[in-house]
Design a protein around this nucleic acid. Structure first.
Length: 796
RNA sequence: GCCGAAGUGGCGGAAUUGGCAGACGCGCCGGACUCAAAAUCCGGUGAGGGAAACCUCGUGUGGGUUCGAGUCCCACCUUCGGCACCA
C-alpha cells in the first residue's frame, strides 16, 4: 500500500472537478416551474483587503459540507462566491502599501481564489463576481435610481458620525462604543448633508416578518434591540405664554400625574425662541453651545446631570399643573420628540435631575403598582391606568397612542474614493437630477491623490465632475460622494442568480427560482448591520415589483469566532497559521475536518495544532484500513452482525446531524466510531460495506481523500453518488442491553432479546442477583418498564 | 438596568422526546514493536472508599415536580454577547 500523501491526491481531484465543471449549476429554462429541490447555500462574501485566515476556513468549510451533502441527497445546489471589494478596508490597505486599491484588491482576489481552490471548496466559479467591477456596480447605481425615484433614498442635513481618522461619515451600525468600527478612532458629531435610505419606514416589517425566519434567537434578539420599538403615547403640553403645544413621547402615561417638570433637548427647535424671550437667555444660549461641543461619548456617559431653567412653564393636560421648562442634555433630540415630561418619582434619571436642582418629587404609583394621587384614575393598576389615561387624553385631543423606535435611517454616503459613484447630478436649476439609466454605469474616475482630506477625493476629478444637467442641459456637477459597501452587499445574493445579465441586475424569474437563500452562514458581528440592510433591501425590491420574496435568508447560521492564543483571528493579528500553511503541512482534508471537529460551529473556538495532529491520525487510519479492505475483503453478503448495524446507525446519525440538526462536529465523531469498529473487526463479512460507507459519509468533510479511496474501492464520481440510506430494519438490533434500576439507580445491565414481552423483562430484572441483593426481600411497590430500554423497580 | 446565550472530567466537547452522564478527540499513565527515537498498535484514565466483587458521591448554587432530572419548573450565582441618560 502506498503512503497517504494529501498534496498529491488533493491536486489530482481538484483538477478533475475543475475540468468536469462539477460544481456549476445551470439556470432554469424560461417558464420553468419552481424546483422544490433547489437549495441555495451561501456564505458571506469576503473582503479582499488581505488574504484568508482560519475564520474563513471555518465559514466556507461549513458551507461546503452542507453544499456537498445536499448535492448528494438530491438537491440542485447553487453555491456561488464573490468579493466585497469596494470600501474602506481595501482603500486603507492601498494607502498603506502605496498602490492603487484596484491593484491591491485584484491581487488579493487572485490569491484568495487560489486558496479557496486548494481547500477544495465546491463553488460554482462561473458565477464569481467582484463588487468593484463596473459590471456589478452599474446595477448598484440602477437600483439606487429605483430607490430614489420611489422616495426610498433621500438627502438631508443631519448630525452624523464622523471618523476623524478615516475622514468619512459612518453609519450608526458602524460605530461601536463611540469609536470607529474599523480604525478605533473616537467618533465626532458633525452636521452634514448626507444620503439616507428610509429604513425606519420598515421598522415594523423588519420586526413582524422575523417570524418567517429560522434564525438563531440571539441574532433575532440583537435585531429587536437594534430596532428598539417602544410603545407609549404622545402627549401635548401647552405653553400658555407662547400659545404653543409641545408634544412629548412617553412609555409611561400612567405616571402623568407625577410630572413635576419638563425638559427640552438642547437641540430642540423651540429652544432658540425661548432664549429670545427668557430673562436668562444668555445662560441658555451658553448652555446649548457647551452641550453641542460636548463629545457624544461624554454626554452619553451621564456622569452628572446639567441643565438650565428657561423661565417658562408648561401645563400638564391631566391636572392643569404648571411645571417649569428646563433645557438639559440628557434629553436627546433624535429620540421621541426631543422633549420629555419628567417624573422623578418613577424615573431614575429624572430623580437624579430633581435632586440636583431641588425640584419636587411626587409619587403616583404605590408598591402594589396602583395609582395614587391621580384624580379619577387613583386605585387603578398602572397598566390599566396607562390605557385609560391615553384614552381620556384622546377625547380632549391632548394625546394619542404612539410608537417610537431606536432605529435611525441608514446614512450611506461616504466621503471616500474607493466606492460606487452615486449617479446623480446637481443642477442649480433642477436640483438633484438622476443620471438616466442608459448612461450607466457612472464609472469611478481615476484620481491621482485619493487620500482622505475631509473633502471627497472625487471632487478633484474636475473634468469628471463637470457634466451637463441631464434635464435642462446647463452645467451641473456630479455627486462626488460614494456609496457605503453595505449597499453592494445588500443585494449581491440576487446578482449571483443571474451574474452575466447586461440588461438588468438580474432576471426576476431566475431570482425567484433560486431565492431565498436556504442556508446563509457568516459571523454574527453582522447581525445589526448587513443582515438588517439586506432584509430591508429585499422588502423594498419586493414592493417595487422586482422580486417575489420579502426575506433574503430563510435560515441563517451564525458561526463563532476562531481564536488562536486567545486572540480573535483577523488580518490584524500576526503570527497565526495561514490556511495555505495549514494545507501545506496537513493537507486540505485534515484542515477541513479539524476546524469543524473542534466544537459546535456556532460557538467561539480556540484553534490548537494538537487538533490537526489528532485528525491526521484519523485520516491515516482511514486511509490504511480502507486500502486494506479494498485489497482483501470481497464484496458480497454483509450478514446481520453488529458491524452492519453500526454502519446503519452511523448513516442515520450523520444524516440527521447534517440535514436536520445542522450540527457539524458530531458527524465526524460518528464516523470515527465506525472506523474504530472496522479496525477492530477487519474480517467481518460487513467490513467492505463499513469501509465504503465510512468513505461515503466523510466525503462532505474530506472530499479529496474520500474520492481517492472510493476509486480504490472500485467506483467513480463519489460527488454524484447518492447519499447512503439507513435501513430501519437494521437500525434496531435483535437483542438489547436492558438497564435494570432499583429506585431509579442503575443496578444491573442484561443483554436480552428485543421481542421479550414486558412481564418477561420484569421477571428477568427481578432474577438478577445484583438486584436481589439490593431488594433484600423488600416489597416491590411499583414497576416501570420503558420498552427496549429499562426496568425500574420501586421499593418502600 | 433591559434583552439574549451559556455553565458537564486535566482540556475541546457528547448525551436528539425526561430513561445507562462523560461518546469522539486531545493530554496523561502503562505496555508492545525498536539498539534507541519517531511513527504505529494494545490497555487504562470523573472523584472518594475497598484486596476485590462492588459501594458512595458527581453536570454552577439552593429548592421543587417525577418511579427516574445535565435535560422540566421556581429562585439565585457566574461568564460571555447585544442595547442603553432611548423618556
Amino acid at each position: 500500500m502506498d503512503r497517504y500523501e494529501p498534496q498529491t491526491i488533493e491536486t489530482k481531484w481538484q483538477r478533475v472537478w475543475e475540468e468536469n465543471r462539477v460544481f456549476e449549476v445551470p439556470n432554469p429554462d424560461p417558464g420553468a416551474h419552481r424546483n422544490e429541490r433547489k437549495n441555495y447555500v451561501l456564505e458571506m462574501l469576503p473582503y479582499p483587503s488581505g488574504s484568508l485566515h482560519i475564520g474563513h476556513v471555518l465559514v466556507y468549510t461549513l458551507g461546503d459540507v452542507l453544499a456537498r451533502f445536499y448535492r448528494r441527497t438530491g438537491s440542485e445546489v447553487l453555491r456561488p462566491m464573490g468579493y466585497d471589494s469596494f470600501g474602506l478596508p481595501a482603500e486603507n490597505a492601498a494607502l498603506k502599501e502605496g498602490e492603487h486599491p484596484r491593484k491591491i484588491v485584484e491581487r488579493n482576489i487572485e490569491s484568495i481564489r487560489r486558496t479557496m481552490k486548494r481547500l477544495g471548496w465546491a463553488i460554482d466559479w462561473s458565477r464569481e463576481l467582484s463588487t468593484h467591477e463596473p459590471e456589478y456596480y452599474r446595477w448598484n447605481q440602477w437600483l439606487f435610481l429605483k430607490f430614489f425615484e420611489h422616495g426610498h433614498a433621500y438627502r438631508k442635513a443631519a448630525v452624523v458620525n464622523w471618523c476623524p481618522n478615516d475622514q468619512t461619515v459612518l453609519a450608526n451600525e458602524q460605530v461601536k462604543d463611540g469609536r470607529c468600527e474599523r480604525c478605533g478612532a473616537e467618533v465626532e458629531a458633525r452636521k452634514l448633508e448626507q444620503w439616507f435610505f428610509r429604513i425606519t419606514a420598515y421598522a415594523d416589517a423588519l420586526l413582524d416578518e422575523m417570524k418567517e425566519l429560522e434564525w438563531p434567537e440571539r441574532v433575532l434578539a440583537m435585531q429587536r434591540n437594534w430596532i428598539g420599538r417602544s410603545e407609549g403615547a404622545e402627549i401635548l403640553f401647552r405653553v400658555q405664554e407662547l400659545d404653543i403645544d409641545i408634544p412629548v413621547f412617553t412609555t409611561r402615561p400612567d405616571t402623568l400625574f407625577g410630572a413635576t417638570f419638563f425638559i427640552l433637548a438642547p437641540e430642540h427647535p423651540l429652544v432658540d425662541r425661548l432664549a429670545e424671550q427668557s430673562p436668562n437667555g444668555d445662560e441658555l444660549r451658553e448652555y446649548v453651545r457647551t452641550a453641542a461641543a460636548r463629545p457624544a461619548e461624554e454626554r452619553a456617559a451621564g456622569t452628572e446631570k446639567t441643565g438650565v431653567f428657561t423661565g417658562f412653564f408648561a401645563t400638564n393636560p391631566v391636572n392643569d399643573a404648571r411645571i417649569p421648562i428646563w433645557v438639559a442634555d440628557y434629553v436627546l433630540m433624535d429620540y421621541g420628540t426631543g422633549a420629555i415630561m419628567a417624573v422623578p418619582a418613577h424615573d431614575e434619571r429624572d430623580r437624579e435631575f430633581a435632586e440636583r436642582f431641588d425640584l419636587p418629587i411626587k409619587t403616583v404609583i404605590d408598591e402594589e403598582g396602583k395609582l395614587v394621587d391621580s384624580a379619577q384614575f387613583s386605585g387603578l393598576p398602572h397598566e390599566q391606568a396607562a390605557k385609560a389615561i391615553v384614552e381620556w387624553l384622546g377625547t380632549n385631543g391632548r394625546g394619542r397612542p404612539a410608537v417610537s423606535y431606536r432605529l435611525r435611517d441608514w446614512g450611506w454616503s461616504r466621503q471616500r474614493y474607493w466606492g460606487c459613484p452615486i449617479p446623480v447630478v446637481y443642477c442649480d436649476e433642477c436640483g438633484i437630477v438622476p443620471v438616466p439609466e442608459e448612461d450607466l454605469p457612472v464609472l469611478l474616475p481615476e484620481v491621482e491623490d485619493y487620500k482622505p482630506k475631509g473633502i471627497p477625493p472625487l471632487a478633484q476629478a474636475e473634468e469628471w465632475v463637470r457634466v451637463p444637467c441631464p434635464r435642462c442641459g446647463k452645467e451641473g456637477r456630479r455627486e462626488v460622494e460614494t456609496m457605503d459597501t453595505f449597499v453592494d452587499s445588500s443585494w449581491y445574493f440576487l446578482r449571483y442568480c443571474d451574474p452575466h445579465n447586461d440588461q438588468a441586475p438580474y432576471d426576476r424569474e431566475i431570482a425567484d427560482y433560486w431565492m431565498p437563500v436556504d442556508h446563509y452562514t457568516g459571523g454574527i458581528d453582522h447581525s445589526t448591520v448587513h443582515l438588517i440592510y439586506a432584509r430591508y433591501f429585499t422588502k423594498v425590491l419586493n414592493e417595487l415589483g422586482l422580486l417575489g420574496h420579502r426575506e433574503p435568508f430563510k435560515r441563517f447560521f451564525g458561526n463563532g469566532f476562531v481564536t488562536q492564543g486567545g486572540k480573535k483571528i483577523s488580518k490584524r493579528v500576526g503570527g497565526a497559521a495561514t490556511p495555505d500553511e495549514m494545507v501545506e503541512s496537513y493537507g486540505a482534508d485534515a484542515t477541513r475536518l479539524s476546524i469543524l471537529f473542534i466544537g459546535p460551529a456556532d460557538q467561539d473556538m480556540e484553534w490548537t495544532p494538537s487538533i490537526v495532529e489528532g485528525m491526521q491520525r484519523f485520516v491515516r487510519r482511514l486511509w490504511r484500513i480502507v486500502n486494506e479492505v479494498a485489497e482483501s475483503a470481497p464484496a458480497g453478503e454483509t450478514g446481520e452482525g453488529p458491524l452492519v448495524r453500526k454502519v446503519h446507525q452511523t448513516i442515520a446519525r450523520v444524516t440527521d446531524d447534517l440535514g436536520r440538526r445542522h450540527q457539524f462536529n458530531t458527524p465526524v465523531s460518528a464516523v470515527m466510531e465506525l472506523v474504530n469498529e472496522l479496525v477492530k473487526t477487519p474480517t467481518d463479512p460487513a467490513a467492505r460495506f463499513a469501509a465504503e460507507t465510512s468513505v461515503s459519509l466523510i466525503q462532505p468533510y474530506a472530499p479529496h481523500l474520500a474520492e481517492e479511496l472510493w476509486e480504490r474501492l472500485g467506483y467513480g464520481r463519489l460527488w454524484e453518488a447518492p447519499w447512503p440510506q439507513a435501513d430501519p430494519d437494521l437500525l434496531e438490533e435483535d437483542t438489547f442491553e436492558l438497564v435494570v434500576q432499583v429506585n431509579g439507580k442503575v443496578r444491573d445491565r442484561l443483554r436480552v432479546p428485543a421481542d421479550l414481552p414486558e412481564e418477561e423483562l420484569v421477571a428477568r430484572a427481578k432474577d438478577s442477583p445484583k438486584v436481589q441483593a439490593q431488594l433484600n426481600g423488600a416489597e416491590i411497590r411499583q414497576t416501570i418498564v420503558v420498552p427496549r430500554k429499562l426496568v425500574n423497580l420501586v421499593v418502600r
